[in-house]
């Protein structure tokens, strides 16, 4: 049943109409790294206003998948479609529709928060006249007001993650890609991060990776489980499903591990 669900959406034609097309569609994307198939024929859709949680154990292929979606790593096969347009056909233009927070936030420790965000805004192609407003908006949304003039290297992990999210949102992207956004945060910071991610669905499609089922349940509308680069589960999630997801997660890992043995 799991495999049947995972096969959903295979052999789909790219949707050319940017209005009806999902914010993100990956069409059988694959990637081999160091001779090892890390992602295998992965097909996913994320609609506008939806938060998709990508779950999996370490080495499941989550980060590689997100890097391909963000345009940082090219797939060996398959397509990444943003609003129906192939990301790798016009990569520079398409990447402006994506906000990406990698597993380790791409920060410059020697810069102050507002200096860094101004640079990011300009890098993402925002006109100079819109930069101040965009930086101010994201500083407020990510609750960075009290640290905006401090050096990033002096901030706590929680604030640094929020700066990382702010840089991903500055150019109002259609799709926000967050790789382990709550990694290394304390419980209070994690709760704030969940609130922030939930709030993002109002303006963006969001795809995030996480190890934590409770976090996925709290923030996500849908959950996709990856194991050894293969999509094993893709379904909507509702509140109070942590225990069921836990069982499912363990079963997927156990099924595949025993099959491999």
């Amino acid at each position: 049943m799991l495999v049947a669900r995972a096969a959903r959406g295979h052999n789909r034609a790219p949707v050319a109409d940017p209005v009806s097309a999902p914010a993100l569609r990956t069409d059988r994307i694959s990637r081999t790294l160091a001779g090892h198939r890390v992602v295998d024929a992965l097909s996913l859709d994320v609609a506008r206003g939806e938060v998709l949680g990508l779950l999996g154990v370490n080495g499941a292929g989550k980060s590689t998948t997100l890097r391909m979606i963000a345009g940082v790593l090219a797939p060996d096969a398959g397509q990444v479609l943003l609003g129906g347009q192939d990301l790798y056909e016009a990569p520079e233009l398409a990447r402006r529709g994506i906000g990406y927070l990698p597993e380790r936030a791409p920060l410059h420790a020697e810069l102050a928060v507002d200096e860094y965000l101004t640079f990011c805004a300009r890098l993402h192609g925002l006109p100079r006249r819109d930069t101040v407003a965009a930086v101010g908006r994201e500083i407020e949304r990510c609750d960075l007001g009290e640290v905006r003039r401090r050096l990033i290297g002096q901030l706590s992990k929680g604030f640094q993650q929020r700066v990382g999210i702010a840089q991903a949102l500055l150019h109002a992207p259609t799709l926000v890609v967050l790789d382990e956004p709550a990694s290394g945060l304390d419980p209070v910071q994690s709760l704030r991060m969940r609130e922030l991610i939930r709030a993002l669905r109002a303006d963006h499609a969001v795809i995030l990776s996480t190890h934590l089922l409770a976090e996925a349940e709290a923030c996500c509308d849908r959950i996709a489980i990856l194991h050894r680069g293969v999509l094993r589960h893709d379904a909507a999630v509702t509140a109070g499903e942590t225990a069921r997801l836990e069982q499912l997660f363990l079963r997927i890992a156990a099924d595949l591990d025993s099959a491999a043995a």
């Binding site: 940082v72 890098l123 993402h124 840089q167």
Partner: peptide, 14 residues
């Protein structure tokens, strides 16, 4: 080394 190159690679910059 500082994992900040992804900022440039992921932005819409050639």
């Amino acid at each position: 080394r500082a994992h900040s190159l992804s900022l440039l690679l992921a932005a819409g910059v050639g």
